[in-house]
Write a protein that binds this DNA or RNA. Structure first.
Lengths: 186, 186
DNA sequence: CTGCCCATGTAAATGGTTACATGATTGA
DNA sequence: TCAATCATGTAACCATTTACATGGGCAG
């Protein structure tokens, strides 16, 4: 599992609470990994049992108390070992492509609607990436090399989504010639 | 879940066994959805209970008996309703990007190794896509439009992986200037 | 006689989503 | 007074992976 290692990676910079980590997954981290608070709390609990992190209870008066997690030496070891291992291509689970490949069951108009809807979502995603882009990577990076790496990560997302946008447009253009024709003769 | 609907999609063409479906997921279907035989058998069982498919036992002498699954009217209904629903952008779970974003913990040389390994895997994946490309889509498509849709699905995969290849090369070039430098001063 | 193809499955663990649940403080 | 933010979590379910398990036929 990578969620464990992603969490270790962040705890390796500063101690953080489950809530802090959840917020990070809502903001920047989701560019390469997604997780909900449920999952984060559960994973932190496991990691505590495995001795990868330690818990510090922080009492607060104006806000609810919180639990800060600190990475341990075991945790750092685990993190470094995992980081150096090669990574596989992520498994593909692309609902739109499933629908396209079964598209003989749909009108051309419906297929176009699916593509246009997906196009809108891609556009929204790209807007999100662009906005954060310059700010976060420039401000918080601890070195020139880290800034470069963070930019590269964003670059990956942007390039892939832009490629999909172009693919959508290409596919929409190609579909034009099927408009109006009935749902193919059997 | 889309596995259910993917299976319905194929059973909508011809009756198939769990084994047949597993083979398809090992060959073409994995271009947009991945699944193991464990999952396929279990999902078929559920679908049977939900009345989306029916089972036909086929006795064979030279080979083990098999169970052919036929789609029902309920199944066809479910499939069509699902197909017309808009699809979301798949959640991102990209291990290489996690590693890159935590890359401050690694030597530049190790990061380069990770990228080069990923590059090789991308190349292999692309070879796979290209080989099947012309054959399958041309031979089995039941209409010009279906052929177009299948090509579009492959086109999506190829474009995205080629984009990642270019991204890798760009990133490798950019990393050159960090080679040799120690793992940044704290 | 070794290993692959046919064909089915179960068990156990891990991973992920959705809904439920609480309760104080702060700002519009 | 309404909604959002802070901060924690549980319960139930759904999805996925890995390993275990069986056993005949066929080709090299």
């Amino acid at each position: 599992m990578s969620l464990k290692h992603t969490l270790l990676g962040f705890l390796n910079m500063w101690p953080l609470s489950g809530y802090d980590l959840t917020k990070m997954f809502g903001a920047t981290v989701r560019f390469y990994w997604s997780a909900t608070h449920t999952q984060i709390y559960r994973t932190l609990k496991q990691m505590l049992q495995e001795g990868l992190v330690e818990q510090e209870l922080v009492r607060q008066t104006d806000y609810p108390n919180k639990k800060l997690y600190h990475i341990t030496d075991r945790g750092r070891e685990e993190l470094l070992a995992w980081l150096a291992e090669p990574a596989d291509i992520p498994p593909v689970r692309h609902r739109l492509l499933v629908k396209m490949s079964l598209g003989e069951e749909l009108d051309t108009e419906t297929i176009i609607r699916l593509l246009e809807d997906y196009r809108k979502k891609l556009q929204q995603r790209l807007d999100l990436y662009d906005k954060r882009n310059k700010q976060i990577t420039q401000e918080y990076a601890r070195s020139e090399r880290e800034r470069f790496l963070w930019d590269a990560v964003l670059d990956n997302g942007i390039s892939v989504y832009e490629t999909e946008l172009e693919w959508i447009d290409r596919t929409l253009r190609g579909l034009q010639r099927f408009i109006g024709r009935a749902r193919e003769e059997k």
